[in-house]
Design a protein around this nucleic acid. Structure first.
Lengths: 229, 229
DNA sequence: GCTTTGCATTGACTTAAGTCAAGAAATAAG
DNA sequence: CTTATTTCTTGACTTAAGTCAATGCAAAGC
């Protein structure tokens, strides 16, 4: 199997499709390479297609007038992004930047929409992707509005531990500055909270490696948005 | 044309479909009636279908442990909601409550998914709906994370003025308490900001009627997330 | 009409988290 | 190895917005 076909068949978006269909999808894809820090697209740009990360990492983010970043998503291999303008028209609602050397597959809007028309299961897969993203957004809004930063951090650490299949140990895959942006805060605040949680024996931070010393308290903190006095 | 068919043909989700297709959709729909304050579904409930508002108003919201509400959406006639579990499986990610006497059309999951398989344009319409909702969420996250409450209020007032087709006059269609929940704040804070904006001659508040006295400054405030010292 | 119930406002106070500024580490570059 | 540049941490201070509590107001019901 070809390298690109390998990637395509491995992404959930294209699950359950026949080899022929996968080959059709490969046909319309275009390879794009980005170095670390390079912009993939900017908010307001016209979107003529969406992307799938073949390799690397891409962050989707908004920036305030004052320059503060709020990261909406960080996507890794197999994850699609930039679909909104494909289906809703208009422009990209946020910025996309490679935060590592990245290889992306780009799927042009018109060709992909044509494929959808003849592939009901591809449509359903795409509907599932967008729905899961909506679900993620409800969590993010919940976090930003109803939880304090320590609770957001606790929730993220637990999520990461589960994702990495570890019980009480995680390795950050992004810088702490980026993590601050993802949690809706700033590096200074995040740093203080890491220190505070360390001194409270909830976690042990060594560079990017974090041991969850007291997972049950972390879980309670993550649930219970605000501090209990 | 039948009353239900009238509603269905009027909602953007079913735009561009033939009469036959609309009739098929009508066939699978089920009428449901809710009084003000009644719960449509709760976070965590299993979703066996999605809804379209025929008449009335429904709020989608999250609640914190301490009881603070964050409203995600308020939907009126013609707007669909509760689609996430239809396509992503699992349960509803948030709560839905009627905030006025409401008439809803409910579309059962399996029957609707069957319709999608044979109606590519219905799929594309649904993809468009979800994509627009994703776009809205990016705005909401941007607001919550990068803007202060006065900026969010200013943005909402301008949005509402545009929606109501007025230049400098809006009528709130929800209570101020609900508006606070939508803006990610609490009634006390919103009340103070209304008072402050009034004293700064930006707006004139008379019950639910608000005159935008200085729209250009409001626009600047809405853009510029944080206060300029 | 009056009373009740929920909604909105105002005041006094607390606090989480942001800003500004300076150092310390760590990574990358020469 | 040494310098340079980015990333992270820590401290002192400010501030937006939340909490608690009391009161005003208006619509709904008797």
């Amino acid at each position: 199997m070809g390298k690109i076909l390998d990637i395509i068949s491995g992404t959930p978006l294209f699950n359950g499709l026949s080899e022929d269909q996968l080959r059709e999808i490969e046909q319309i894809s275009e390879n794009q390479y980005f170095s670390k820090g390079e912009t993939v697209f900017s908010e307001g740009d016209t979107g003529n297609g969406f992307y799938v990360v073949a390799d690397g990492m891409v962050k989707i983010f908004k920036v305030s007038m004052e320059g503060k970043e709020q990261i909406l998503h960080i996507f890794g291999p197999g994850e699609p992004f930039g679909e909104v303008p494909v289906f809703a028209g208009q422009s990209f609602p946020a910025n996309a930047q490679a935060i590592a050397r990245s290889h992306l597959l780009c799927f042009p809007r018109t060709a992909f929409v044509d494929l959808l028309s003849s592939n009901p299961s591809l449509s359903l897969n795409m509907l599932a992707v967008l729905s899961m993203r909506l679900r993620q957004f409800t969590v993010q809004v919940d976090n930003l509005s109803l939880k304090e930063v320590p609770a957001r951090l606790a929730a993220y650490l637990i999520y990461l531990a589960d994702e990495q299949g570890k019980e009480d140990f995680v390795t950050l895959n992004i810088s702490k500055g980026q993590l601050a942006g993802l949690l809706g805060t700033i590096p200074e605040t995040l740093s203080r909270i890491f220190a505070k949680m360390g001194s409270e024996n909830l976690i042990e931070v060594k560079k990017k490696n974090i041991r969850l010393v007291n997972r049950s308290v972390l879980e309670e903190l993550a649930e219970h948005g605000k501090h209990i006095r």
